[in-house]
Design a binder for these strands. Sequence first.
RNA 1: GCAUCCUUAGCUCAACGGAUAGAGCGUCGGACUUCGAAUCCGCAGGUUGCAGGUUCGAAUCCUGCAGGAUGCGCCA
Length: 475
Amino acid sequence: MPLPEKIGSVKVAGAGYINFYLSKDILLKMVKNILESGNDFGQSKCSNPRKIQLEFVSANPTGPMNIVSARAAAVGSTLASALRACGNDVSTEFYLNDAGNQIRLLGESFAARIAQIEGKNAQIPEGGYFGEYLIEYAKEYLQSAISENPKEWIVHRITIEQQDTLKNFRTEFDMWFSEKEFRKSGKVEEVLERLKKSGQTYEKDGALWFAASRISPNVEDFVLIKSDGELAYGLVDIAYHANKFEERGFDVVYTILGPDHHGHSGRLDAAMEALGHSGKLKVLILQQVNLIEGGEKIKMSKRAGKLITMTELIDDVGTDAARYFFLTRKIEAHLDFDLDLARKTSDENPVYYIQYAYARIRSILEFAQNKGIDIEEIANSDISLLKEREEIELVRKMSKFPYIVKKTAQNLQPHIIPFYLLEFAKKFHNFYTKYRVVDENDKRISAARLALITAAAETIKNGLKICGISAPDKM
RNA sequence: GCAUCCUUAGCUCAACGGAUAGAGCGUCGGACUUCGAAUCCGCAGGUUGCAGGUUCGAAUCCUGCAGGAUGCGCCA
């Protein structure tokens, strides 16, 4: 039976399986495609591009960010890149909780610290913020001699700090959405009226409740308006999410929340349904992170003052290693972060294994150039000279990269790319050890192999880029 | 008590419901006069927590049980 030209061979593999292999020609064309695409290799067009919002981190501006925020930053920014690579219109957002009870407590705690430094007798309020960092900020505030209201100042100051930290962690947001400003918009009251009209609210103990349990039996009712007349967090958050769809027209919203918010997730879903947005919001619960050092869990407690902040973690292990480790787990799985392993700049640390493959290729290209080979010309080489098993395997692997990116975006699972890159690096090292790339006695095969490894470097670089990990030329 | 997540090799983890369940690390044994040894090759390591069910087919889906983590406020 004649085979279509795209199919190279067919083999019966046992267990009822028949394998069709892509022809070598098709595979080898991939190499040229990759070289032509360059930085765009891995991008694809989406059959139904959507306007997507991805909200993540959204840490309260009340103190230094913790390691769960770090994980959220790594995961969120990577998913955003992957979704963009698939042709979606993606907007990333940090919801700035700069209003409400916690901010009031922060302001009071900060004022108390200032008063203490000035020698006055002042107490940090019940449930306030006792962290030492407020003392440092208070000194800074007093020295700067600004007339700004201390509460406004501290919120702003901490927000700037968070923005810097996130930027250092290669996580940028298109939008920092202020809760305080949002509350002024009147949207909260409007949404409240609509919820009342939906008939799913009731009064009890002087508060206004939302009957979420009627919409979804597993969800408990919750308070919209507290008995003191204040807006509850739940209500503001519902209005905020309604705003995403109604004022800003997102088709889909992904909100990444910490494990302590899983109860909130069901409430939001129920409320979105009541407001006519069912199925458009997907809350992703990102599980917790345990830091492991010396084979043991580091117990962190605010009281004992043993808290490792996101900044400390980045300073300790570096952005590349930290991001890599945060990305290697499914989002719903708990992550044990092995500090000792992440610190190691040796072969045990997989992030270097991948980066090393890239650096090695850059080094070979430089070597070839020094030998007088014109790197620009390798795109015109005779790729069909590649026929060793390891060469074909490498091409086969790189041809899967766009699919890997797509799968990451579809499944909203960041770990797929780092795992792929690890396997890919393995295939490259494998090839490298067995075959010489630059062979002065055979210029034609050299050119073909240089084309091959250039395409490999492109694949690694683009993969690392999506993960927010650097691809160093030398290391 | 309720809710969410987890349980796969010694360790850390992969595996669109599909083939003989795969990687890294660790152990052991090998490979550098030539492009980077931060590398490669090989050996060993498994009743996928337990018990049922659905299916042509289950690590994967359903139920129950056991073990672990977390959350259950008119805080956010």
